[in-house]
């Protein structure tokens, strides 16, 4: 049993999500519909993308404290430049991704603590966001709005998009050769370097991928909210870390699961909806999210204990 669970770490995130979903449907049977599910997971897509972005960094044993401000900045750029002059907007977003890659290379080359560099960058992103959009406003490009409100047959947009994100990142990180090497950097950077890989470039790649998914997160967020402000996604830093951990990822050792991360993000998004269905006093909503987080992580511990005893 323990062996089975340790081989299939993904089961715990799936289990947590199912329990939460079952509880939600029990409390609010009407949510069990195309429209209801779309509502439940309304904001899940940007959170899932941000979680994947954080996962890319945690995959190489670092942590990104600037992700929330970065997503906010992207949202501001999307709601202004990308809407008004698309070409300039695209160039700015590409430059942001390159900056992320550069940040990874510098962190590796100078052996800097990622937690502090990203902390500093969070001020930079925040300042740039204020620069781009001093007061809330802007508007979403129409095509983005249309994309985020599309109604595919059978499953709602949020669910279809989450499945797609999980699939693409799984192929990229778990199945592909380069993804395997990137995870190897997290597992044992020395042996990857010894095998002749340029680790600095690999780290830049991981950060660049993180920037790419961060950009997607900011764009989809604007597509849903139709406008932006400089503080729109500050919560995403902590949400994304929590999402990766909920999905069975770990802070060190390159142990990440893209599918788990997406499920973790869905769980977090659902937890918020669930609590509002519970008619819990708004005072306690945040606290209850914290409690759910602790609960799920405790479950993870029970699984881990089993692994140890059987391993």
């Amino acid at each position: 049993m323990g062996q089975f669970l340790s081989r299939h770490r993904i089961l715990l995130p799936i289990f947590s999500l199912s329990v939460l979903l079952a509880a939600t449907f029990y409390m609010q049977p009407r949510a069990m519909s195309y429209f209801g599910i779309n509502l439940l997971f309304n904001l899940a897509v940007p959170i899932a993308l941000a979680t994947v972005a954080q996962m890319m960094i945690m995959m190489v044993n670092d942590i990104d404290l600037s992700l929330g401000t970065f997503v906010s900045l992207v949202a501001c750029v999307t709601a202004t430049f990308l809407n008004d002059s698309p070409l300039l907007g695209v160039l700015i977003l590409a430059a942001l991704i390159l900056t992320y890659a550069g940040m990874g290379a510098v962190i590796h080359a100078l052996d800097l603590p990622a937690i502090v560099v990203t902390l500093g960058m969070s001020f930079v992103w925040g300042g740039l966001a204020l620069f781009v959009l001093p007061s809330p406003g802007g508007s979403s490009p129409d095509w983005l709005r249309a994309l985020m409100t599309v109604k595919p047959p059978l499953v709602p947009m949020a669910v279809a998009a989450s499945v797609l994100i999980a699939l693409v990142t799984h192929l990229l990180i778990i199945r592909s050769g380069i993804g395997t090497v990137l995870r190897g950097v997290g597992g044992n950077a020395r042996s990857v370097a010894r095998a002749g890989w340029p680790v600095a470039r690999l780290k830049a790649l991981a950060y660049g991928l993180s920037g790419l998914f961060g950009v997607f997160a900011g764009m989809t967020l604007v597509g849903l909210t139709t406008s932006a402000d400089a503080n729109i996604a500050l919560r995403y830093t902590l949400l994304s870390i929590a999402g990766v951990i909920l999905g069975g990822g770990e802070f060190i050792g390159g142990k990440v699961s893209p599918v788990g991360a997406v499920i973790g993000a869905l769980t977090l998004a659902l937890a918020a909806s669930f609590l509002s269905f519970m008619r819990l006093s708004p005072d306690w909503q945040i606290g209850a999210q914290g409690a759910i987080l602790i609960l799920v992580l405790t479950a993870r511990l029970i699984f881990a204990r089993r692994e140890n005893t059987t391993g």
Partner: peptide, 9 residues
């Protein structure tokens, strides 16, 4: 992080 959400509440 998780505990701070509870304190905030």
């Amino acid at each position: 992080l998780a505990a701070s959400l509870v304190y905030q509440s």
